[in-house]
Design a binder for these strands. Sequence first.
DNA 1: ATGGTTGCTTGGCAA
Length: 266
Amino acid sequence: MKITTWNINSVRLRMPLLARFLKTHAPDVICLQETKCRDAEFPSSDLRALGYEHFAIHGQKGYHGVAIVSKHPLRLLDKRDFCEAGHARHVAVEIEASGAPLALHNFYVPAGGDEPDEAINPKFAHKLGFLDEMTEWIRRDRIAEGRAVLLGDLNIAPLEHDVWSHKALLKVVSHTPIEVEKLNKVFAAGDWIDSMRHFVPPEEKLFTWWSYRAADWAASDRGRRLDHILVSKALGGALAGLHVAREARSWERPSDHVPVTIALNP
DNA sequence: ATGGTTGCTTGGCAA
């Protein structure tokens, strides 16, 4: 069972790239963020033609938007509006995986704006509040009990080697100590396994995002690991592989994020 | 220290 997360940055614009990825890697399920379209505008028929016939879509016009696209039947579990902001940033399903149901939570955590100060930047306050609410919800609703996966664009790079320069990014939104602390609380609330770091040691650089603003993203390689796949303890023994599709960053008109895939054993 | 790009839309936001 292969599960992918990808911040696609407009699913309509990027449909040819999505098709290319699905044909090459053929995950069972792909979780998208920043689809940037209403549910009725989602390219379902293109995806059906590729063998992905099952959908859970939580979209909105122009901004945000998440979706789960699958070869296998899905049962919609939830579309939560964290912080009651009216943003489409979460969708959850149950899916049959290796003979037993698995809960899959797809997140697009707020980016948080430019200024890492709650007092003057409401977007940063929203990001921190969103993370607090995630922590509380994981505990209260026992989200990580049993077979569960929490993934998506969490917009935080928690480890030193999740960014190109720890020192240079300490005051840059996505890597500030307060954000890292809040994300670590999300991790601890479910006792989640960081599946990417299960396969790649923490002293090794690991990125999933490179800014559009770099003159040559590959040469400078100033990336960050903003996308994550967390699995519950019950799935720890099933972790079988990781693939970060770095090549997708060099495709024509790419997303600034690349697909991340984990494989789970039967 | 600053500015750099992209997407959704055509005026600036959000990232």
